[in-house]
Simulated scan of single mutants.
Amino acid sequence: MIQAEIKSLLKEDISILIKISNSGKHYLCDCGEASLLTVKEIQSVSAVFISHTHIDHFSNFDGIFRHQIGSGEKIMVCGPKNIHQQIEARLKSYTWNLVDENAIEYEIREIVSKEEINIYTIRPPHWNLELIKKQNFLFEDEYVNVDFAILDHKTDSIAYLFKEKDSVTFNEKDSAFRKGKWISELKTAFENNDPDKDIQIEETIYKASDLFHFLIRNTGFKLGVIMDHNVCEDNYEKIKTVFKKADKVYIETFYKDEDQEFAKINYHSFASASGKIMNECEVKEAVPIHFSRRYVESDKQEIETAFYKAFQGN
């Protein structure tokens, strides 16, 4: 299952680590200050998802990179328009005469629109960008695929939905057959929609479709991260399209309700607005995050109270 941990303290800039159960693979959402993020966790990050490049979401990119260089790994970085140029500028601002080209590779995925993703590579020591292809999806690996919405924050702000891949399990209680490799063959036939595949159990041959009732499809967990966004109907329609009935969503709740005029001026959300849109999305669990640094713990509690009241429809 997908799990998320906020790695930033109240007055720090936001960063969220996403972990996959029973795997050493991690993903990182935004690169703000994050004193709770360990070096070991950073070195396990295989993909970084940047909502936008305001300083409070991008300032710690160099610190993350510092603990990845030398790994020899390919790291994915996904982000809004021009993210490739901004990463190139950051990397070229340092001297790399002691680092060879195999020290690391970044694959940068620039989100131009819902249908257009530009893929670049960049590697040391010269950090020259190379556009290698364009594609119409953002990210998929053996554990998750990632959908997104492009929200307005007076700049593009990408909200991400991590969708754990569905799994198939064998219902052992309903079967009188002896276990064997036929179970994995049956699962493969089910996942490949191959009902006519022959499945041999001991000395008898069965059609896969006759055994499918022993299998249970488990819907993958859906985890969302919605960072900075303006309170407006256009943003909310995009959020509803991508995050409807998600299992858990972390959503930016920058201001208290009494400060919603600041939210309007700065293209941010506020407590009851974020709670209300999560209610309308029928999200199972919603978590308010990324509070203004002007606030103290008592303000955070006030924000959370207003948020959950709106989320529960009160």
Rank of each mutant, 00 (worst) to 15 (best):
G220F: 12
N235H: 07
S209N: 10
R293K: 13
R109V: 02
A246E: 02
Q86E: 06
I87T: 03
E73P: 02
H84S: 06
I64L: 15
K284A: 15
L131D: 08
K74E: 15
I111R: 02
T169W: 00
N145D: 03
K240R: 07
E5H: 09
K207F: 00
G70D: 08
A273H: 02
C31E: 09
K74I: 13
N171I: 10
K264Y: 10
L9Q: 04
S157L: 03
F177Y: 14
E5G: 01
E172D: 12
T95A: 14
E282L: 15
T95Y: 06
F177W: 10
S113A: 06
Q86T: 09
E107M: 14
F162K: 07
T241S: 13
L37H: 10
Q312W: 02
D196F: 01
E140F: 02
Q260K: 15
I16A: 09
N118L: 05
S269R: 14
F65V: 07
Y267S: 09
T169Q: 03
E115P: 00
Y255V: 05
Y27P: 05
N192R: 11
D259M: 13
D174W: 02
D210M: 02
F49Y: 04
A271C: 09
E297F: 10
I42N: 05
H290D: 10
Y27F: 06
L161Q: 13
K240A: 13
N60Q: 10
I83S: 02
N22F: 05
D196R: 01
D156F: 14
E261K: 12
N230S: 13
I20D: 12
K244Q: 08
K163T: 07
L129S: 01
I158W: 06
R178K: 08
S23R: 14
V112A: 05
R217H: 01
K92I: 15
V296A: 03
M227P: 12
I201Q: 01
T204V: 03
I42P: 08
C29D: 09
Y295R: 15
P195A: 02
R109A: 04
N60G: 06
D247S: 15
E115G: 04
E73W: 07
Y160L: 05
K74D: 12
V45W: 15
D210S: 08
L36G: 00
I6R: 15
D174R: 11
K187L: 03
P80R: 05
T188D: 03
L215P: 12
D56N: 11
D56V: 09
T38A: 05
N128R: 12
L161K: 14
Y120S: 01
I55R: 03
D147C: 14
H213V: 00
E297H: 08
S292N: 11
E164A: 14
